[in-house]
Structures are given as structure tokens and as C-alpha cells.
């Protein structure tokens, strides 16, 4: 088992609310902390504010109320964005004919640290190489990203995030449209990154069974925070029923049984 100091908070949300302009809140009064080495699963019903919450933590949206701290710094003055990796939803990501190789995609990860007006260095190329080795995609480095399978593409995007040498990676529904066997390999890779490299992971997912199995902490959100606990506690306290209510039977039917 990994021995990480779970007491160091790297992301702190304090009474964060967000509204798209109307009276209704997409995220309301949410407070919790993400600690170094956490493997946090974010679950909740559709339209429950999962993606909004992630976008708030990534600085893509500004909170209407409350505050967010990244690595002890207020998000508005935070500049070390290379510490934060992001793997967006695969399906919305890019067009398959985009002329870019695996190597070029992973290189993008090194840009954040380097800044404008700087050229790629030997050190950057080594980071790209190491990241590709880490996700076992080195042999594909000259291939066009559009020619790869969904699972392989997702590994490349993990490599892009890794190339920045981040401390935390956000993954928003990363396995949409990827077959089950490939998904298993993908989660094995994530587990390895979390346990061996002490990388903090924030995983937004529909599949409750996967979150319950993989994550060390779970945030349940339905605009406000329903619960923040370990997978075992969530099941014991009936948090899932509270979160999904009548939807539960449908979810179980759709995604298989929840491991208990």
C-alpha cells in the first residue's frame, strides 16, 4: 500500500457556488479538500454539476460565491498551471483527421512549463519519451492520433498530462465509448500512476461500480455536496440511494452491479 501524507491539502474548496446566470445553482455551497495522493472519484446524476465542479477547480469557470485554493494559493492568483493535468472527455476532443502525431500531442504537455517564445529542448523530448513509456505507447509515437483506437488515444492524453510532470490529473469521463477490456487496462494504468508515482487523481465518472472499486475517496454531488467519504462508507451509509433516489434501479441496470 502507498504511504502518502493524506493530510496535505492541495485543492481546497470553501462554500463554492456557481450559477449560469439564473436563480438556480449548478453547484451550491460545496466544501471539501483534495489531499496529496488521493484518488478521488466524483459521482452524481446527469446535470448534477460534476463537470461544472471540475471546470471550477481547473479555473475554466469562476465561482459565483466561495473560494478555491490550489496548492495553498487563491485560484485567481495561481500561476503554476503545469502542476495540474487535464484529460478531457474523449468524444468531444478532436476531429479524427487532425494532422498531428502521438509525439506532437504529448509534446503539448511540456508547453505549459516552458512558456511562450521558448523552443522545445532535449529535456522536453526526454519527458515526452518517458511519458510515452509510462503509458506503453512509445511504439506509436509517429502515428497520427486519429489512426489510433479510443483506448490508445486516451493513453496518449494521459501521456500528454504526464509530460508536464503534474501533481494532480483531472479526468472527465475518460472512458466514454471505450470497450470494457480496454477500460480495465486503462484503470490499471491509473492505479499504477496513483500508487507508484503518488500522483493525485480526480476522476469524474458515470460508472458507480468503477468509482467504488478504484477511488480512495468519493465526492457525491447533486448541485450541493451529498457526501464526501470513502467507498466503503458511501455504501454503508446508503449515500448512493440518497444521491440517485429512484434513478438507482436504472443505473444498476445500465452499469452492472455495485461491488459491495
Amino acid at each position: 500500500m502507498h504511504t502518502i501524507d493524506h493530510t496535505i491539502s492541495i485543492i481546497e474548496l470553501d462554500k463554492v457556488s456557481y450559477t449560469f446566470g439564473g436563480a438556480e445553482y449548478a453547484v451550491k455551497d460545496v466544501s471539501f479538500n483534495i489531499h496529496r495522493g488521493d484518488y478521488l472519484g466524483v459521482i452524481g446524476p446527469n446535470g448534477g454539476g460534476k463537470t461544472t465542479l471540475v471546470k471550477l477547480m481547473l479555473g475554466l469557470l469562476q465561482p459565483s460565491k466561495g473560494s478555491i485554493k490550489l496548492f495553498g494559493q487563491d485560484i485567481r492568483s495561481f500561476r503554476d498551471w503545469y502542476k495540474i493535468g487535464y484529460v478531457p472527455q474523449k468524444t468531444t476532443l478532436f476531429d479524427a483527421n487532425f494532422p498531428v502525431t502521438v509525439e506532437e500531442v504529448v509534446s503539448m504537455g511540456t508547453y505549459a512549463k516552458r512558456g511562450l517564445f521558448h523552443f522545445t529542448t532535449v529535456e522536453d523530448r526526454k519527458k515526452v519519451h518517458d511519458a510515452l513509456v509510462q503509458v506503453e505507447m512509445l511504439q506509436y509515437k509517429k502515428r497520427l492520433i486519429g489512426d489510433l483506437s479510443g483506448g490508445q488515444q486516451q493513453r496518449v492524453f494521459i501521456a500528454r498530462a504526464l509530460a508536464a510532470e503534474p501533481e494532480v490529473i483531472f479526468l472527465d469521463e475518460p472512458t466514454v465509448g471505450v470497450d470494457t477490456a480496454t477500460q480495465e487496462q486503462f484503470y490499471l494504468l491509473l492505479r499504477k500512476l496513483n500508487r507508484k508515482l503518488d500522483l493525485t487523481l480526480v476522476l469524474v465518472l458515470h460508472e458507480l461500480d468503477v468509482v467504488a472499486r478504484e477511488a480512495t475517496e468519493i465526492v457525491c454531488i447533486n448541485s450541493n455536496l451529498v457526501s464526501y467519504c470513502t467507498p466503503e462508507e458511501l455504501i454503508k451509509t446508503g449515500g448512493i440511494e440518497k444521491l440517485y433516489g429512484k434513478e438507482l434501479r436504472y443505473i444498476l441496470h445500465d452499469h452492472g452491479s455495485i461491488s459491495r
Binding site: 500561476r79 498551471w81 476532443l93 500531442v105 509534446s107 503539448m108 511562450l116
Partner: peptide
């Protein structure tokens, strides 16, 4: 490199600063 990044994936580029 930044132009390539925002052309390919503007949201991730924005997250990277």
C-alpha cells in the same frame, strides 16, 4: 507550439495556462 495546442484542444491549452 501554443498555436498548435489551442488549435488541437483549446480547453486543455487553457488549463495548462
Amino acid at each position: 507550439k501554443e498555436l498548435v495546442y489551442i488549435t488541437f484542444d483549446e480547453e486543455s491549452a487553457q488549463v495548462s495556462g
